[in-house]
Design a protein around this nucleic acid. Structure first.
Length: 178
DNA sequence: CCCTGATTCGC
DNA sequence: GCGAATCAGG
């Protein structure tokens, strides 16, 4: 896809709204990368932005409102163990029950909406198992992340590979430096 | 490691 | 003009 007037307009709009290049790239579907966005932004000469209301940088994840004591503290006691927090205990206590009580297809696994992630929150090492209608606002990915960083999911046991713009980083990680 | 924008340069 | 690769930084 190319830079049609419409796409350029959307680019300008989003850029001025303070969205990051990668976010805009995701918004402008069509295999557009953040590099493409940045390159275009510069060519259009709208480098500087008003402000950056985008609190990106740090944690995309939501921090517990209260009880910051234990990293595993959830508001409920559901057997949900996620690996997205610093100290990520394995799902040992619940692993067995899940395997035994879930003979049904993995698609029946229910992950609380609050624990799922959007396309923007999805990371290379997260489970990409989709939940919900892709055309719906409620569409989310499982998002489970193992402590070891491998794309293993306690709920879906395997994930589909998704080409990403970070393939380079993944390669560098495996290879070494240049 | 996660991410950000900036720049270069072959196409 | 385009954007991957790279650079420089938080």
């Amino acid at each position: 896809m190319s830079w049609t007037d419409e796409r350029v307009e959307l680019l300008k709009k989003l850029w001025n709204q303070g969205l990051s290049a990668s976010q805009i790239a995701a918004e402008l579907a069509g295999g557009i990368t953040r590099n493409a966005v940045i390159g275009k932004v510069h060519r259009l000469g709208l480098s500087g932005r008003a402000k950056a209301p985008a609190p990106q940088q740090a944690r995309p994840r939501k921090a517990p409102t209260r009880a910051p004591s234990h990293p595993m503290s959830h508001t409920h006691s559901a057997p949900v163990v996620r690996g997205n927090l610093a100290v990520a205990p394995k799902a040992m206590p619940m692993a067995a029950p899940i395997m035994e009580l879930a003979p049904t297809p993995m698609t029946d696994v229910v992950i609380p909406m609050s624990e799922r992630v959007t396309i923007m929150e999805l990371r290379e090492s997260m489970c990409r198992w989709p939940h919900g209608d892709p055309t719906s606002e409620d569409f989310r990915f499982c998002g489970a992340k193992s402590p070891t960083g491998t794309p293993y999911c306690n709920f879906h046991s395997q994930v589909a590979y998704q080409p990403s713009m970070d393939r380079r980083r993944a390669a560098a990680r495996a290879g070494g430096m240049r």
